[in-house]
Simulated scan of single mutants.
Amino acid sequence: MPYKAKAKDLYISSLFKYNLKYAKSLNPDKVFILSAKYGLIDLEREIEPYDKTLNNMPSEEIKKWADCVIGQLKKEANPEEDEFIFLAGEKYRKYLLPHISKYQIPLEGMKIGEQLQYLKMRCSNE
């Protein structure tokens, strides 16, 4: 039987961990992970480890992925009325944003080191 773990436990980079800590500190109604393989996933969902990223996918494939994610999102929230905070990279949000009315991108334009510094400063009180 293939190994499975909760989605929040599979992602182990410092950037992911600080993003998650920061996301939770905002007291949102819900936090999701944008996965290249699974689309929109709940933190507690059990998934198998994978090695897939949008970073080297052609635009057409990313658009198909984004359409799938929007379909998943509509089952969880209202893209026209709810507010979303994206902590994901540009490739992961580019084709999602046209479908979402209200959103924030607090890390937009920052390099990874700048993102980590921003997140550490905001999570240091926790």
Rank of each mutant, 00 (worst) to 15 (best):
I41Q: 12
S35N: 05
Q115I: 00
Y92L: 02
H99E: 08
F84L: 02
E126D: 12
L26D: 07
L87R: 04
I85P: 08
A23G: 00
D29G: 15
K94T: 08
K102N: 12
P28L: 01
C68D: 15
A66E: 00
I62D: 01
S25Y: 07
A66D: 07
C123V: 14
L97M: 13
F84D: 04
A77F: 09
I47Y: 02
L20Q: 00
C123D: 01
K111I: 03
W65P: 04
K6C: 05
E48G: 00
S25M: 08
N56T: 14
M110L: 09
E61K: 14
M121C: 10
N27Q: 14
A66K: 01
L15M: 00
H99T: 12
Q117G: 03
W65R: 01
M57C: 09
K4F: 14
K63Y: 04
P58F: 09
Y18E: 10
L96I: 01
P106G: 01
V31N: 06
L34W: 00
N56A: 06
V69G: 13
I112L: 06
L20P: 02
L73S: 10
N56C: 03
I12Q: 15
A23K: 07
S13N: 08
P2S: 11
K4Y: 13
I85W: 12
L96R: 08
K64H: 06
L40T: 02
N55H: 14
M57Q: 15
G89R: 03
E81Q: 14
D82V: 01
L96K: 10
E81S: 13
E126A: 03
L87V: 05
D29C: 11
K75N: 15
K64I: 02
N55E: 14
R93C: 05
I85K: 12
K75I: 02
A5F: 09
T53R: 03
K64Q: 07
I70S: 07
P49V: 07
I85V: 15
E76K: 15
K120H: 10
I41A: 02
K74P: 00
G109D: 00
P106R: 10
K120Y: 14
